[in-house]
Every structure is written in C-alpha cells, then in structure tokens.
C-alpha cells in the first residue's frame, strides 16, 4: 500500500465533499430520531408562532385602522331654527364642496330615536329635548379633518361641529404599544429559540459523546466534528420557522369566518392579511441563524471538555 495517495480531486472538492458528508450526517440524525426532532421543531414553532401571530394581528388591525380613517365622519349640528328646508339647503351646499364625499341629513326625530336607543332610555323619559337637524358629513379620504371642521364651523347656519378624533388617536396609541410589544416578544422568543436549540444540541452531543471521541481519535478536526451539529441546529431553526408560518396561516383560516361575521355587523367587509413572503424569508433567515448560533455555543463548550 502506498503512502497517502491522491485525494481524487483538489482541496476545494475535498472540502465540498466533507461539507456534503456533514450535511447528510445531520439529516441522518434527524431521520434516525424522528420523535425527538419533531418535538423540538414543534416547541420552536410554538415559540415562533406567538410573535408571528401577534405581528399578523397588528398588520390586520392597522389595515382596519386605515379603513376607519376613511369612514370617519363629522357631525355638523345646525341651528335649532334651521328647519328641514334649511337643513336640505345647507346639505346640498356642502355636498358641492370638493373635500366632501357625502352629506347625510339626520332629522331631530331620527336623532331622538338614536339617542333613546343608545342610552337605553324610553323616548318619553328622554323628554322633549329640542334636537337640531344634524348633517353627517363624510370627508374625502385625503382631507385634513381638523381644517375641514374649521371651515364647516364658519359655514352658514352651523351651530356646532363635532369631530370625534379621540378614539382614532387612542387606537393609534394602542397600535403603537402593540407594535412595541411585538418587537419585545420577538426578541424574547428569539432568545428562547436560541436556548431550546442550544439545549437540544447539548443533549444530542452528550448522547453522541462516544462518536465525537471516536471522530477525534481518527483525526477529525474540531470543525469537522462541529459541522453536523451546526447543520442540525439550522434544520431545527428552519423547521420551526416553517411550522410557525403554517400555524399562523391555519389560524387565519380558522378566524376567517368569525372575523367576516364581525365585520358584517359594522357593514364592512374584512379581508385578513396573511404574513408576507418577505416575512417568511425573514423568519427562516433569523431562525436559521439562531439555530446555528445555538448549536455553535453548545458544541464549542462540549468540545473543549472532550479534547485533551
């Protein structure tokens, strides 16, 4: 037998083959322990589903918020003595304004019915409160509501203009809190992904301690020994991200009916937005990198113990 003969290719090809063998070995490990692998991936998926689900909810709420902005109407209270004729006249005037989409006059009788309905009081309990004609003005979506309200205030026969912007601002603030919460949760669960994978690889290394020793005995470099574990970490990360993605899609599918029913009560139609493909890419990359990182931490610590 001759000395260390030809390697059947250059160093680069040998390197690529070593990587290929490591990759196959990592897949082999996953396949040989299907239950352990599946459980780990499910745990990771659960950890990732929460921030992804919340983010999806946030995206959808923001869409609702945008819709509400457009549906936002201004209540214009006319002077008490304006009467039906006056109200109709003002209404037709206002509807010719460029910034106004629609004007809907509400008679004092209708107003009274709504008031009674809203307060839950009998009409006669409310009594004979004089109510003015009210014009519900729907502004153009692009308009500056505050400025339009100011112009309406100066218009003929207008007593009072009510713009309820408070709840819009409140919703804005809530969404702000919510989106910060999503970021915090994402960071928290990213850390948990790191630890779950790191811990999993650590037990895997302990289980395969003998194998690692043997590899070291026959001259494997630390890099060679480390590689299959890094691949395992990567597979777990990718698997977890993919499963979380599917879980959120399944969740959206299950919520579709009830959300549509809810939207119908507001006379609106709702279209749930699923997480984008970019988001899937981001999750796969992030989770994959975390997987490799977690594995690296675990392997480096264990290797330092094994080598003399």
């Amino acid at each position: 037998m001759s000395r260390m003969s030809e390697r059947g290719g250059g160093d680069l090809r040998a390197w690529a083959r070593r990587h290929g063998y490591s990759l196959l070995s990592s897949v082999g490990t996953l396949v040989r322990n299907p239950l352990t692998s599946a459980l780990t991936i499910i745990v990771l998926a659960i950890a990732l589903t929460l921030p992804l689900g919340l983010n999806t909810a946030l995206v959808n709420l923001e869409a609702v918020h945008d819709n509400l902005d457009r549906l936002d109407s201004i209540s214009v209270f006319l002077e008490l003595d304006a009467g039906e004729d006056g109200a109709r006249r003002v209404a037709s005037q206002l509807s010719s304004w460029r910034n106004i989409l629609a004007v809907d006059p509400v008679s004092p009788e209708t107003g009274m019915r709504e008031l009674a309905g809203a307060t839950g009081l009998d009409r006669f309990e409310v009594g004979d409160v004089p109510l003015p004609w009210v014009l519900e003005v729907t502004p153009n979506s692009t308009v500056d509501i505050a400025e339009l309200a100011e112009r309406l205030r100066r218009a003929e026969r207008v007593d009072m203009v009510v713009v309820d912007l408070d709840w819009v601002r409140r919703l804005d603030a809530i969404l702000g809190v919510f989106s910060r919460l999503v970021i915090l949760l994402a960071a928290l669960f990213a850390a948990s992904v790191l630890f779950v994978i790191s811990n999993n690889i650590r037990t895997e290394i302990q289980r395969r301690r003998e194998e690692i020793e043997i590899l070291a005995l026959v001259g494997a470099t630390p890099g060679y020994i480390r590689r299959p574990f890094l691949y395992s970490g990567l597979w777990m990360g990718l698997g977890g991200a993919l499963l979380a993605w599917l879980a959120v899609h399944a969740g959206l599918w299950m919520l579709k009916g009830p959300v549509e029913a809810l939207a119908a009560t507001y006379g609106a139609s709702a279209e749930l937005t699923a997480p984008s493909v970019q988001m899937l890419g981001l999750m796969l990359t992030g989770s994959g990198v975390l997987g490799i990182l977690g594995a690296w931490v675990a392997v480096s610590r264990q290797l330092a113990r094994i080598n003399p």
């Binding site: 390697r7 690529a16 070593r18 043997i214 026959v218 001259g219």
Partner: peptide, 24 residues
C-alpha cells in the same frame, strides 16, 4: 474497538476517508 455501534461496518471503516474528503 472504539466503533460507532449504531452504524454499519461500511460507515465505520469509511470514517478516516470521510474526514479527509474522499469521493464516495
């Protein structure tokens, strides 16, 4: 012996060559 007990004979004997990156 120091053999990988969950592998086949082939995989065990091949180990030094796998590490060196020989073609399959």
């Amino acid at each position: 012996h120091k053999l990988l007990t969950d592998r086949k004979v082939l995989d065990n004997v091949a180990l030094p060559l796998l590490i060196a990156g020989y073609s399959w």
